[in-house]
């Protein structure tokens, strides 16, 4: 089957272009609602969302494991359904679940993956992949004898066996030890340095914060926001000033109504939340007002909200308000 002509091949074009993807499962459940997304060539893109948000469904549709109900996906200029042969040869997927062939050896299974994806045998390359993942010593071991973390490594090796230029990692660090996580992220950075585009989903928000260039937040099948990580942090980032009071307050005094204040720890802690985007933080004025009303504090500290806070605030907001 001849692949049809590439729609766009310049380097600036998105490597993955998701257009109006909907998915309603046979059960009638709508898992994805009109997803539009562009992944840039060579970036690390993190897809964040609570359980059941539709992350795996979206990845599965792009990779050809699940049929979409409507919408199209273009990968590197080719339609993922019509030109599946061209597209899939360039994509590697590490699934969320540890699905492995118990009775196969590590070496046999990576060799199988390479062949399945249409690549001529290349033992030196596979050896390198296994060595990078500290699997070389285990190459003749049956997969069922490996630990969970080792099985995860095998799945990564399988996904890399055909030298993909786009790599999907679906919750790669779920149930994985620190050492593997470290190895994995080192590998991801190396791959990115070689030009591989990486799309990952994760529950570990610090990881997305560390690793990703851009972040997409998905909730209940809808993509709420897609943003450069730094922009997202700045845009939605809030700072918090926490004051530990000398004397507990029963409620916020009338004079302080209008300030963005909350009481915590039975009234012994006063929290002031402010936007980092504002010219004036209002801290000086707040402190002045406090002293005018003889509210004394013994300690104060300020914290920047993490991606986790941003994430929580996004998914709890009514949709449409985030951007």
């Amino acid at each position: 089957m001849p692949a049809s002509k590439a729609i766009a091949t310049e380097n600036s074009a998105p490597i993955i272009w998701v257009q109006g993807i909907n998915k309603t499962y046979a059960s009638g459940f709508q898992a994805l609602n009109n997803i539009n997304l562009e992944i840039k060539r060579g970036e690390i893109f993190a897809l964040l969302g609570p359980n059941g948000a539709g992350k795996t469904t979206l990845i599965s549709i792009i990779c050809g494991i699940v049929n979409s109900t409507s919408g199209i996906v273009i990968a590197d200029g080719y339609d993922t359904v019509r030109d599946y042969r061209t597209v899939r040869a360039t994509i590697g997927l590490v699934p969320q679940e540890l699905h492995t062939d118990s009775f196969e050896s590590v070496w046999a299974t990576v060799k199988f993956s390479r062949g399945l994806f249409g690549k001529a045998p290349n033992a030196p390359y596979l050896e390198k992949v296994l060595r990078d993942l500290s699997l070389w010593d285990k190459r003749n071991v049956k997969i069922k004898e490996l630990s969970g973390g080792m099985k995860r490594r095998v799945l990564i090796a399988k996904a890399l066996a055909h030298e993909p230029t786009i790599l999907f990692l679906d919750e790669p660090s779920a149930g994985v030890d620190v050492e593997l996580r470290h190895d994995m992220w080192r590998m991801v950075r190396e791959l990115r340095a070689k030009g591989t585009t990486i799309i990952l989903t994760t529950h570990y928000i610090e990881e997305a914060e560390d690793m990703a260039d851009r972040i997409g937040v998905i909730n209940k099948g809808e993509l709420i926001v897609v943003e450069d990580k730094n922009v997202l942090m700045r845009k939605l980032g809030k700072k918090r000033l926490t004051l530990t009071l000398r004397q507990s307050l029963a409620s916020i005094p009338a004079a302080l109504i209008g300030w963005n204040l909350t009481l915590a720890d039975d009234g012994s802690t006063l929290i002031y939340t402010f936007d980092t985007q504002e010219e004036e933080t209002g801290i000086a004025e707040l402190l002045r007002t406090l002293s005018e009303h003889h509210i004394e504090f013994k300690d104060l500290r300020s914290t920047e909200s993490s991606l986790e806070d941003i994430f929580v605030s996004l998914v709890h907001q009514p949709k449409g308000n985030a951007s």
Partner: peptide, 14 residues
């Protein structure tokens, strides 16, 4: 049954 079919489905095979 084992879930390994994901690989077959995501592979460039007709």
């Amino acid at each position: 049954w084992a879930g390994t079919i994901y690989e077959l489905l995501s592979a460039p095979v007709s």
